[in-house]
Amino acid sequence: MTNATNDLCLLDRTEAVAKLTLNRPGARNALSIDLLDALSNRLDELAQTDNVNAVILAGAGRAFCAGMDLKAVLDEPGAPAQLLTKIANVTLKLRALPMPTIARVNRAAIGGGCGLMCVCDFAVTHDDAKIGYPEVDLGVCPAVVAPWLVRKVGAGVARRVLLAGGTMSGTRAHELGLVTSLAPSDSLDEEVRNLAERIASGGPVALRATKEWLNKLDGSTLAEQVNRGALISTEVVTSDEARACLSKAFSR
């Protein structure tokens, strides 16, 4: 991994708590192929790390994550499939981390960003954050993130959220179970840090055994559905309908 790519996802550590930071603040941390590569490498690194008991996933700058960087790949043959395959792999790796994970969601978690949030075991945000899956509004199918949302909030809520598209407030996301807790935006870091330290106070063996079991129990270890989601999303995003919708959105 080059240094430039490496810098797209930062990894810091304070005692037993590690922090991963998506680092494309100029693009509101939109998930590009390079950023996903960087995140994937960091996840590999963490999976092999002992003595980390909790991981925080954050976004640099003003927003957690604006979603997939579709604009960059739309006109390049093969690139949409590459991007969607990479996000599918990243979600599987993120969930498979042996230690609990917490999404620190400031301002916005949209589309693929909301997907990463829901793959984490916990998510903390503030009441007026903008959260959701507007994919269908853009002619895109949120097939990769759908299995994770179903696991997070149940099939009924997931159906309504994904088919309705649009976004919701942090408050509504908390009501529906997408988000674990709300904090005032100026004390988001404190809330996340307290949660991470509380979790990290657990025994590493007990935490890892429990998470491994929960992943088995809810089907998180099954890659087939998520990978199939990448194929479905690719098919839909390269359709004429999606191209027309996305071109219109990008020209705004």
Binding site: K152, V153, G154, T180, K211, D218
Partner: peptide, 9 residues
């Protein structure tokens, strides 16, 4: 499953 994960971890 979502809340179960939160409460048990």
């Amino acid at each position: 499953d979502g809340h179960t994960r939160e409460r048990l971890l």
